[in-house]
Simulated assay, not measured.
Amino acid sequence: MSLLSRLAIGHKYEAKAQRYLATQGLVFLEKNFRAKCGEIDLIMRDQREIVFVEVKYRKQHHYGSGAEAVTRSKQSKLKKTALLWLSKNNLSPDHTYFRFDVVALSCEPSQIEWIKNAIVEG
């Protein structure tokens, strides 16, 4: 599968996750925030809390769920990138409520799993 095909699939499922979270009351802030240390798929607001969302899609579960693909290394990159986003937006991590969620989507069977506080900061 080509890189463009993978990117298109990724954007499709990120949009699906964004729509799902909006139906749950979250407000969209930004998508695909990139920095040298990593990328955050979606940044949403849940009332007073900033939510950094990692979206994972799996066509099948042969190699595990999408949530299982968020490794320690990926978690570390997400945390560093989130701190940069907070700084860029003049928000102090010490005075801002934020969390890391994972939205895992799969095709077979078709489902959306939203895991709140999937990554513990620190």
Results as ranks from 00 to 15, higher is better:
M1F: 08
M1G: 14
M1S: 03
S2D: 04
S5T: 11
S5M: 07
S5W: 09
R6N: 14
R6P: 07
R6D: 15
L7C: 15
L7P: 08
L7G: 04
I9V: 05
I9T: 11
H11C: 05
K12F: 08
E14Y: 13
E14H: 10
A15I: 12
Q18W: 07
Q18C: 07
R19M: 13
A22E: 15
T23M: 14
G25K: 14
L26N: 01
F28N: 02
F28H: 14
F28Q: 14
E30Y: 09
E30W: 03
F33W: 03
F33R: 07
A35N: 07
C37G: 13
G38L: 02
E39P: 13
D41H: 00
L42S: 10
L42N: 13
L42P: 04
I43P: 05
R45N: 09
D46N: 09
R48D: 15
R48G: 08
R48Q: 15
R48K: 13
E49W: 03
V51R: 01
F52Y: 15
V53I: 06
E54F: 00
V55L: 13
K56N: 10
K56S: 06
Q60W: 04
H61E: 09
H62C: 07
G64Y: 12
G64D: 10
S65E: 13
E68C: 13
A69E: 01
A69D: 06
V70A: 05
V70T: 00
S73V: 02
S73L: 05
K74Y: 03
Q75I: 00
S76R: 15
K79Q: 12
K80T: 12
A82C: 05
L83M: 10
L86I: 07
L86F: 11
N89P: 10
N90T: 04
L91Y: 09
S92L: 09
S92V: 03
P93Q: 04
D94Y: 13
H95Y: 14
T96V: 12
F98T: 11
F98G: 10
R99Q: 10
F100R: 04
D101R: 02
V102N: 02
V103A: 05
L105T: 06
C107G: 08
C107E: 12
C107W: 11
S110F: 10
Q111E: 14
Q111R: 08
I112Y: 07
W114Q: 03
W114I: 01
I115L: 12
I115K: 00
K116R: 09
K116T: 06
N117W: 04
V120F: 05
G122Y: 09
